[in-house]
Amino acid sequence: MWPRRIVRLFVIGLFAVIHGQMSTCVSQSTGTVRIFCEPGGSSYVLDGQHRMADRELTLMEGPHRFVFWAPERRMLDTTLMVLPNTTRELRVQLRYSQEYIAFRHRADNFTRNTRWLRYGPPVLALGSAAWAGVSIKHAIDARKDLDALADAYTDSSYPAGIRDIKQEKLPAANKELRDARTMAYVSSGVFVASAAAVWYTRRVLKHRALPVFEDKEKARFEGLAWVPMGAGEGVWMAGLTIPLR
């Protein structure tokens, strides 16, 4: 049998040890984290629970998980060891997501193609119209030259001159008319085709929709936040993006 005094001292000592342990827990230190994230509008989820955008945090010492995200950027998942009574800088640069790069590529193609469709056919139509106009005038002039030669034949009383008209000038004028007419037909055809292209591209442009960027990283990021509700329960935070135009 232990003497009562010894038992009392043991109990007091035990309390002292337990109290010492508890005071150690209560006095666990904190550290400060300064976040420098590029781009500026980024946000992050801390320890899978808190969605935040603060740039300076005071956290309990120990490891903390950060998942950074910004619109159009790829998520960055990293763990930072917070040291007691220390300020640490966390520099993060988020890279563009593959989806955004693909979207940018599609959007650039869309813009370039739209520009071509908008301005290409009208310019082509104007050019071919001018070409057709010049060609038709050339054909008309060639026809007039031929008529003038026919008149010259009728009015001429110079046999050698008539022979020259029939053997030299007339074949040359016929060739000129033939070439001019061919050119007039070709240029008119190009003009009609380009006018049709203008009409068609205008129709196409009316129904042409700009590519929409679907930020899948955002959906993934917004699904990361777990908001504890107590008693072991909680909800997953999720976001829904509806593009408004």
Binding site: A132, R143, Y153, T154, I162, R163, K166, L170, P171, N174
Partner: peptide
């Protein structure tokens, strides 16, 4: 502009020199 090519197409064709034979000063 659409009518002009048609006008050009409807115009007279080439002049055949062998058909020009009605001028008495013509060797042919």
């Amino acid at each position: 502009l659409a009518i002009l090519p048609l006008l050009a197409a409807c115009g007279k064709g080439e002049l055949d020199g062998t058909e020009l034979t009605d001028n008495p000063f013509d060797p042919d």
